[in-house]
Structures are given as C-alpha cells and as structure tokens.
Amino acid sequence: MENQSITRKIVSIKTPAAEPGFLGPDHTARAVVYKEFEHSDPFILLMDDFLDKQDDEPVGGPHPHAGFETVSLLLEGEIGDETHIMKQGDFQMMTAGSGIVHTETIEGKSRMRMLQMWLNLPKADRWAEPRVQDLSFENAPTVEMNGVKTVLYSGSFAGLHSPVKNHVPLIVADIRLQPGARLSESLPASYNAFLYVIEGNVTVGNDQKSLIASQVGWLDRGSVGATSDLTVVADRGGARVVLYAGEPQNDKIISYGPFISDHQDEIRELYSAFRHGKMRHVSTLQEGQRFLY
C-alpha cells in the first residue's frame, strides 16, 4: 500500500522571550530551539541573536566547536573579518566535526541580527573533517511567484536546489509573502520541521492555525518515504517566515559547552585538545575544506 501524502499542521507553538545575551547590554537572544532534542532532532539549538552595539569596545572572540554543524543565516547587518564578511541575507554552514576554532569578534558600533543553529551530525560523521560553506544572498537559489518569494539556502524546496553539501538532509528557506499570498509546497513527510516567523502573521495548514511574529510553529510528521504538503498564508500585512526541515538521526547525544559527542569521555578529550592547541583555526582550512558559492 502506498504512503498517502499528508497536509502538515502545527502541533506545537512556542514564543521564545528576548533574553539578555552574552555580548553585553546591547545583545538580546531568543532561544528558538533549546534543550528539547528528544523532540527537535536533528536540531540541537537555534538562537535568534540581535545586537545593537553602541560603543567601540570589542566583543566576542575565538572559541571551539566539535561534533556538530553551525548553520547561520544573517538577517541584518554584517559580521566577519578581512578573510570573509557575511552580509545581510548570506548563509554559512560550518562543519565543526572533529574540532575547529573560529573567531567572531565585533569591534566597532554594529547592528546585526543572526539566526544560528546547531545541527546534529549523523553518528558516522560525528568526527568528519571540518569544512566551511558560504552561500551569498546574491547566489542563493530564488523563486518568486504569486506574491511569494522563496530564497533557498539548503536542500531542495519549491523547485529549487541549493549547492550546499549536507551531512544531514536539511532544508532552510527564507519565505516572504505579500499580503494574502499563499505558499503551497511539498516536504518529505518524515522531516522534523518548524516555521519561525520573522515578520507579520500567517496561518498554516488546513486548520489555519495562526502564528505571529517571533513565534515558532512545529509541524507534525509522517512516515519515511512519504511526501507532505505545507501550506502557509499571510495575513493582510504580509509576512516573512524561515522554514527549517531536517531528517532526524535518532541517536542520543551528549552536549556540554561548545561540544557535542556520543560519550562523556569524548567531551573531556575535546577540552584537552583545545587547551593544548590541537584544534585548528578555521582560517587555516585548506582548499577543499572551504566552499564559496
């Protein structure tokens, strides 16, 4: 018997509060996904960081990661250094894998907003060779139809295909809807998926469940191999939502500080490697570990 397509509906709505961030009084952060991995697999966490820095005092600095991937979408402003600057609408996927050190320092006055996710790696790829992939807004696959503009950063969606390489099958799409516009597209039914509303209000699914700005709407799931339909309709003010959909890996993880692993002893080994300078800095990655699209 063939699997029937389902129409996705919202099964959980969360409204993350804007909390003080670690970069000082000008930084606020919303925990879009946090400490819910048993339900959010393969998404470990997602932070919505907003910085409106009013002074010239440097903030941030070098820090390590290992065992997962960071998935960053810059909604506003710019961040980076002379080796690479992310601008508004740019996307980066950094595979920390076996371990990498990177530096996020902001020196002068700055206004920026970034969505940064920690994405679990498949157990077989936990210690993959580090790599960084940058997809600029100008080169991101885009389609505009019937009042809906979709910019695709990862995976395949809305007839688009991203060049970004994935260890975990992942869809990341920035969707802007004109007033009253309707998005109707297919998704793999087994993907864990949610919508995060950046601006405006939308209704989702046949039951027209409402989501407003800064809300997270988790979608129901179907069986492996089946397809599903996602329907999103903007209200009369228009809307902007970011869709994240990924294939669950169904592996338990250990999370501690900036590291993800399968066992507690691996966490200790990672801290030791970092303290003894055995983790390479992202700036030392060779050709073949750095991809610009």
Rank of each mutant, 00 (worst) to 15 (best):
A181G: 02
T227L: 11
A189C: 13
E76D: 15
V233L: 03
V224T: 08
R113N: 01
A234E: 04
K9Q: 15
E78H: 05
F91L: 05
E19A: 08
D41I: 12
Y293P: 03
T105Q: 12
Q289C: 03
G288V: 07
I254W: 10
Q208N: 07
F259S: 09
K53I: 04
S261Y: 06
Q116D: 02
P248A: 06
A189I: 02
M47F: 13
Q215I: 05
D262V: 12
T28I: 15
E185K: 01
S283C: 04
P188D: 06
M279R: 15
A239F: 07
N206A: 14
I260G: 13
G97R: 06
P122Y: 00
E269K: 14
D251Y: 08
Y153V: 00
G80H: 03
G108S: 11
L187D: 00
K149Y: 07
N139F: 08
E36P: 13
S214W: 03
I198Y: 06
G277C: 09
V148D: 00
D125R: 11
M117I: 10
V101Q: 13
R221V: 14
H84A: 07
S190A: 09
P130I: 13
F259K: 10
G217E: 02
E82S: 14
E129R: 04
E247G: 02
S154A: 15
L211S: 05
D207G: 01
D134T: 13
I267N: 05
Q178L: 11
S228G: 12
G257F: 13
V71H: 04
G147L: 11
P163K: 06
E266P: 10
K252E: 10
R176A: 09
G147M: 09
I100P: 03
L45C: 08
F137V: 04
A96Y: 11
S223Q: 05
K123E: 14
N139H: 14
Y244K: 05
A158Q: 08
G257Q: 11
E107K: 15
E107A: 07
G99Y: 04
G97V: 13
A239P: 00
A124L: 06
D134K: 05
E199M: 04
S110Y: 07
K109Q: 14
V148P: 01
E57C: 05
V282G: 06
V216P: 00
V101R: 06
Y293Q: 00
S5W: 08
R236Y: 08
H167R: 01
D229E: 11
T15F: 12
E269Y: 02
G67A: 08
F22S: 13
T28Q: 03
S283G: 01
L46C: 11
E144S: 15
N250G: 09
F22K: 14
V172D: 02
R8T: 09
V59Q: 08
T70E: 05
V216C: 01
E138A: 12
I171M: 12
N206I: 04
G180I: 12
G89H: 08
E144G: 00
D134G: 04
H102P: 06
D56Y: 10
I13L: 02
L243T: 10
N250P: 05
F194C: 02
A193K: 09
H27Y: 09
S272H: 15
P58S: 06
A124D: 11
K14Q: 11
G24D: 06
